[in-house]
């Protein structure tokens, strides 16, 4: 997928609608759309910061009755998630950026990065199966 708003929105709709068909709650679908947005934004904005705009990111998703998995992989050099300052600390509260990771961690059941930090895997489990 390239950095095109219509493509990004269409993919979000596809995954969220698949979740709806399987009976995932409104709050689960809210969480899913938000985490997808943050992961894709991070890939293009930060991962591809030094790459041409046309560089695509790879997205895999699997929507099942018990869990939803999404992986977003960019072609950038990666980053160390632990190096991102905690935006919820008092001293960072007025810093405009850096909240995507906090939101993904809060809304997903599991979030994991590969070693080089250019691939994030998101997993959302149905609450009753947790």
């Amino acid at each position: 997928m390239v950095n095109d708003r219509d493509q990004i929105a269409a993919l979000q709709d596809l995954v969220v609608e698949a979740a709806e068909e399987l009976g995932y709650s409104r709050s689960a679908r809210f969480a899913l759309r938000l985490a997808l947005e943050e992961a894709i934004t991070n890939a293009f904005k930060h991962g591809h910061r030094s790459l041409p705009d046309s560089t695509p990111v790879e997205i895999e998703y699997a929507v099942g009755p018990e869990r939803i998995r999404v992986a977003v992989q960019d072609q950038g050099p990666g980053f160390r998630p632990e190096s991102v300052p905690d935006p919820t600390l008092d001293e960072n509260l007025e810093t405009p950026g850096g909240r995507g990771l906090v939101l993904m961690r809060a809304y997903m059941s599991r979030i994991a990065f590969n070693e080089s930090g250019n691939r994030v895997e998101l997993e959302l489990r149905r609450p009753e199966t947790e």
Binding site: F30, E37, E38, T41, E94, T95, P96, G98, R99, G100
Partner: peptide, 17 residues
């Protein structure tokens, strides 16, 4: 509004400042 991203929060912080 149904959905809001971290980018929107960032803009609100800038506006507030």
């Amino acid at each position: 509004v149904d959905h809001l991203s971290s980018a929107a929060l960032g803009t609100l912080i800038t506006v507030n400042t």
